[in-house]
Structures are given as structure tokens and as C-alpha cells.
Amino acid sequence: MIHILKMVAQRLALGVFILFVVSVIIFMAVELLPGDFVDAILGQAATEATVEAFRYQLGLDRPAYIRYFEWLGDIFQGDLGYSFRAQRPIDDLVLLRLYNTLFLAAYAAAIAVPIALLFGVLAAMYRNSFFDRTVNVVALIAISSPEFLAAYILIFVFAVQLGWFPTLAQVSIDMEFGERLRVLLLPAVTLTLVTMAHMMRMTRASIINLLSHPYIEMARLKGMSNRRIIVRHALPNAIAPIVNVVAINLAYMIVGVVVVEVVFVYPGLGQLLVDSVSNRDMPVVQIACLIFAVTYISLNLLADICSVLSNPRLLHPR
């Protein structure tokens, strides 16, 4: 037991370390900005004195590492900084959008995960059948298509031609839950298509790998039914790979949301990030990148820890 706790602690420590490095990289981004970003804000015409005053106000005259820890400390206290373009605190901009993004991702995941797992397991069980081949080709096409293609086809058919859904996913805080789901169905399905294909292929591969183990053959030779072989002999060993598949794809989904948000002009964090990159609104870019990176790294970390925890060799050491 001590051993497994140690391994989990190691993974956690590594995750925290990577988060630290990533935050440093994101912070350093400002330092590397050509010229100074004071110039970018104030323009070339600013006098020496205004520039100095502004630098002092921002604390840019102090060493970078001190500012880094202040930046990090502020974020931990909930103060995300100030957007110069929007002329308001970033908290106002980010929090609602973060909620929107997470809502969309959760919506898509709720559709994608069960379908992908089901199809993946079925394709693995009926390997090389017509069903399997069809599912594979469809999945391959879905993976190979850019998100915006699926999005525009859906918009064209269901929004423009049939008029069932709006072309743009515009939401407000006081919107009813059911209405929100309706408005967000097209973006959620778009996001689902790509992730689902990945998830299905990975599930299929890990189940096939599992079914080739001699202990599955042994269960067959003990006269066990197919159902029991899957439920009792395959699934307990499939948890680790499947959790892994789901977590990796959720991470992918949260990042993949950027393009979908832009297509549907959805007020999420991805949209904000893209706008801020075009405007070179550095503090906002930093915060948005940090949020995406933290989510991505945490999910991958979670997958890693789950697979450690579900390994009987580690769970019951000699």
C-alpha cells in the first residue's frame, strides 16, 4: 500500500512540477514580447515620463521572478489581472466564459463518451465484421475532417435548410436549461463527432489487445459465456485503458472547443483566446492559456493516476 501511495505521490509531484514550468513559460511570454508591451499599449508617441510612470504602475521595473510570484499569488487569490484592450478586470471577462466553455464540453462529453465506448466495445467484439469495418471507415473520416467542415455541414442542413436550430449559439445567463441545450446542440454534436471517433478507435484497440490475452482464452476453455467473459474477465482489466482513453479525449475536447466556439460565435473561453491573440491582449491570453493548460494537464494526470490505482500488481504487491 505504501508503494502505491508513493507512486501516486510521484505522479502528483510530477504534475505539479509540469504545471509550474508551464506557468513560467506562459509568464515569460510577456518578457519575450518584442519591444515592451508598454510600447504596445501606449504607442510610439508616449513621452519618456509617461512610459516610466506606466512601467512603475505595472511593476515592470522590478525583477521578473518577483513579478512572477506576485502574478501567481494574485491568481490564487482570484485576482486574474487587468485587460488593457477591454479596459476592465479579467475576472469579469473570463469567469462567465469559462462556465460556458465547460458547459459545452460537458454537454458534448455526455453524448460522446457513452456512444464511443459502446461502439468501441462492439467493434472489438465483432472484429472484422461488416459492422466493424463500417464503423472504422466512418471514424477515420471523422478524424480526418477539420471541425469546421462538420460544423458547417450541420449548420447548412439543420439551421439554414431545416431551420430547426439557430446558426449561431448565442446564450445568456438567464436562459432556460432546456433552451440552452437546444441552442447548443449543433456545437455539441460537432465537438462530439471528432472526439467520439478518436475515443472509439482507442477503445476498440485496447479491448482487442485485452481479448488476445491467454487468460481470456482460459475463460473460454472453462466454458464461460461470452457475456461473462466480457463482464467478469475483460472489463476489470479494461478500466485502466478506458479511463485513460476518456480522460485523454476530454482533455482534447476542452482544447478542441476553440474552433467550434469560433464557428458558432459562442461566448466561451476559446473565442476569447482567439480574439485576444489577434488583439495581442497579453494578460488575457496568459490567463486563458493557463486555464486551458491546467485543465489539460489535470485530466491527463487523472488518467495516469487512475491507471496506477487500477493495476492489481500495484494494488496487491507481493
Binding site: 487468460y215 482464452e217 482460459m218 476453455l221 472453462k222 466454458g223 459465456s225 482489466n237 492489481p312
Partner: peptide, 23 residues
């Protein structure tokens, strides 16, 4: 066939380490 396997005919494999379910 399934009803016979494990009940009237049984099998012992070469590698026990691989033929037992680790879980």
C-alpha cells in the same frame, strides 16, 4: 460445447502467469 468445457473437459496451459486473470 461450452457446457462441456470446464465441467467434463478441462485445460491446463503452458504459462500459468499468462493464463490467470491478473484482476
Amino acid at each position: 460445447r461450452r457446457a462441456l468445457r470446464g465441467r467434463r473437459i478441462a485445460y491446463v496451459a503452458q504459462s500459468a502467469a499468462a493464463a490467470f486473470n491478473p484482476a
